[in-house]
Design a protein around this nucleic acid. Structure first.
Lengths: 347, 347
DNA sequence: CTGAAAGCGCTTACAG
DNA sequence: CTGAAAGCGCTTACAG
């Protein structure tokens, strides 16, 4: 009789059913080679005891050692982009019978390394990483060992592993060119902190669009820093205090966009200063004016990355891929506020 | 020599270091009783081989059987409320050295049961559940077995387990009374589908506020259904098409609020019809008019629930608690649009 | 301080 | 079709 506080095991079921441990294993795992009678007795005993297979023990013994779980490393689970990605990852993994262990690094590179090791110690079958690190060589041994690994949103550095990301530079270029086309020459850029891949790429796209239009890139209207609402709002405030303030803004991140909009609204400039934000927001359509954005598809990123991981687990060969998901300019109003050079631009 | 594709084990480290398995275990777990020399040799070998302890195997053998992971069951990881909660849970768990397995039920009760069993099969140490089920008796055996379990946002039914939730009825009452105080008598309510605990409670609060003010509760301006932007928008549209449309709206859920605002804006009524939403939104302050909300604190819910679970795991006695986190009315503009009876109300 | 043996709950490999 | 034995990577309980 199993202890009331202990979870029943296969052995308990075997004893109750009057069969061997192995017969229970056969029935529980739907293997061939168990008579109808054995099957029924085992299922009855399992039912009576409330037996559930211990998957951790199973994973330990199985030849492939699969744990039916994958690790997802994010910078902040609470961020809308990250949570949309998390959702897509979980849906695909769940359909494959896997669970997702998601962690937040809080943008701390050391914490990221620790969390990765903790996930690996839990024997996750694969790793999806939105990394804030500048060096990923510490993952080389795991890669060599064949652990499927896909970097999401930002590619690895000093490590040859697959990536799924969006067309950051192209998207930023589109945003900036759009503002130029609407008559703006002095366009501010507010982006995430330097050395962050996505932010660097978006800066590149912004600068390229200016260059192509023959416009100067004034460092005075470029800000890079902590990507949250408060810092975005303060930075926007400082830009508006310039002797020669920008007439348009390209906000390089969803939280920065919120900060920018808050400042513009507080100063009553939301209908004068044009804004394009990178990444969509729930309420974008309902803003005044409705917010023009470069839409990314976090669901697609999560889905593609997770599918790649499971195709590797299913046996497809290991190749380093760099999948780029396109972005889309969604004009809604804020990005079409005319600038001082509109006549010339539309000529 | 361990296989290059196999993860090194304690045995591999022992062989390399020329000590016994148990000595490696002592060093790896920082137990007392290992000489300085043994310690150094083991650490050197572990370093050389890239050894990492297998926590799943460890949990299997340990007397307390702890897996250092907890399960979090949500309806939709991607929902802003859920992802804020998820984040708080993960932060507390991480500080306790635990990982979080988060799953989405997609509001499917059967899927919820399956996912709970999968989490239990993974030997999670505790369970946090935002449930869409109407009956939780299936969890009684686990509760008896001593698995710490806290229901978040919605209490369990037919099961005596702890809950952390917000003051739904009180919050809804505050919202409705606020609109009445600003001169509205015909106030619509749009809430999540019937039989969902939070939505039922919010309906109660809404009705109580009307009753207290001596106002009729017209079913024609009450809608309950799928809580997403699209359904919210359609429902709002239908309400506005009434011969006697409402002058104010209490939206009982964040996604419904977005739908309501979209419809009002499309019809150009966003400055005429007053709106209070349950649950805050990122861009609420930047709306036109800024959105008045009943703010809930998903971070506090997640934190309190997770802390309770870890205090149980640390040995504190099992008591069924019902923790209610207060809501807060945040007036920003949309809820203060005056109604036709304002003079009377403010008299 | 050190290590050989047993065993956590399961699967593998094999014999009947 | 059925089951006894070995072993996954680790900790426990114990002897030296």
């Amino acid at each position: 009789m199993p202890d009331r506080l202990r979870r029943p095991t296969m052995n308990d079921v075997a004893r109750t059913a009057g069969v061997s441990l192995k017969s229970v294993s056969r029935v529980v795992n739907d293997e061939v080679g168990a008579s109808q009678e054995t099957r029924e007795r085992v299922l009855a005993a399992a039912q009576a005891l409330g037996y559930r297979r211990n998957d951790a023990a199973r994973a330990l013994r199985r030849s492939d050692g699969r744990s039916a779980s994958i690790g997802l490393v994010l910078e902040d689970i609470g961020n809308p982009f990250a949570s949309a990605l998390n959702r897509a990852v979980e849906q695909v993994a769940s359909a494959q019978g896997s669970l997702v262990l998601a962690v937040s690094t809080n943008a701390d590179p050391d914490r990221e390394e620790q969390l990765v090791y903790r996930l690996l110690a839990r024997a996750v079958d694969a790793l999806l990483i939105m990394s804030c690190r500048r060096d990923h060589r510490f993952l080389q041994p795991e890669l060599d060992r064949g652990v499927p690994m896909v970097f999401v949103d930002r590619p690895p550095r000093r490590l040859a592993a697959s990536t799924v990301r969006v067309a950051n530079s192209k998207g930023a270029h589109d945003a900036t060119a759009h503002l130029i086309a609407h008559g703006h020459h002095r366009i501010a850029f507010l982006g995430d902190r330097p050395s962050l891949y996505t932010a660097d790429e978006r800066t590149r796209g912004y600068l390229r669009a200016l260059r192509e239009a023959g416009l100067p890139a004034d460092p005075a209207v470029q800000w890079r820093g902590q990507a949250d609402q408060q810092h975005g709002a303060l930075a926007m405030s400082a830009l508006l205090d310039l002797a020669d303030p920008p007439t348009a803004v390209f906000a390089g991140n969803n939280l920065i966009t919120i900060g920018v909009l808050a400042t513009l609204r507080r100063r009553g400039l939301h209908r004068q200063v044009a804004v394009v934000g990178f990444d969509d927001l729930d309420l974008a359509e309902v803003m005044d004016p409705p917010l023009t954005v470069i839409e990314q598809d976090p669901g697609a990123i999560g889905r593609l990355a997770t599918e790649q991981v499971f195709s590797r687990l299913a046996g497809s060969p290991s190749t380093v891929k760099d999948i780029v998901v396109p972005t889309r300019l969604v004009p809604r109003g804020s990005g079409e506020i005319p600038g001082p050079y509109q006549a010339l631009s539309l000529r």
